[in-house]
């Protein structure tokens, strides 16, 4: 019984549950609302928020987990989203690495920029594994859209990301 409680209270279990909610928003609300014809990647922004709140290691592992869940609802190869979102988590944390103290707006900006980078890296990695046709100028529009949306959406997602992996995760 204590093992079950321990697993249920684990921050990684919390991550899976919260990611399912974020992912359901991605596949419903943000799949329908498409500014400039592109879908805002709230999952990418969420992973970026985890990266800036918890560092490179947690960002990479959380991105891997979120990406695997995202891959499970996409027709793209399993692991592609995991790789891209893992890199988003790493990039978000790395963007804040030069700063000793980061403000909330710097964190929001880093999460948004990382999500935007993910929108370019995703078609790039798709091309690497043989899925041609996605690396187009439209990727830049998608990146810009996610970046701008990220500046708004990261603000509420930062405390959610901080709470989700509080008291655990990978630390050096």
């Amino acid at each position: 019984m204590s093992v079950v409680l321990r697993v249920m209270s684990s921050p990684w279990t919390r991550l899976v549950l919260v990611t399912m909610l974020v992912l359901s928003l991605q596949t419903t609300l943000f799949a329908e609302m498409r500014p400039f014809g592109t879908a805002i990647q709230i999952v990418g922004i969420f992973v970026g928020a985890i990266g800036v709140m918890h560092g490179v290691q947690v960002g990479a592992l959380a991105g891997l987990a979120c990406g695997l869940m995202y891959d499970s609802v996409l027709p793209t190869p399993l692991g592609l989203g995991a790789l891209v979102l893992g890199l988003v988590g790493v990039a978000a944390a790395a963007l804040l690495a030069p700063f000793r103290e980061s403000t909330w707006w710097m964190r929001a900006g880093a999460a948004a920029i990382a999500a935007g980078i993910g929108e370019v890296v995703w078609p790039l990695m798709s091309a690497v594994v043989g899925l041609d046709g996605w690396l187009t100028p439209r990727s830049l529009v998608a990146a810009a859209t996610s970046l701008v949306a990220g500046l708004v959406l990261a603000w509420p997602l930062l405390p959610v990301a901080a709470w989700t992996l509080r008291d655990g995760g990978a630390v050096e």
Partner: peptide
């Protein structure tokens, strides 16, 4: 669960490549 930065990135890359 302790893991350093390099190992986290290598783990990410290897797991993803394996799954793909």
């Amino acid at each position: 669960f302790r893991i350093n930065r390099t190992r986290a990135i290598v783990l990410l890359a290897l797991t993803s490549i394996f799954l793909i």
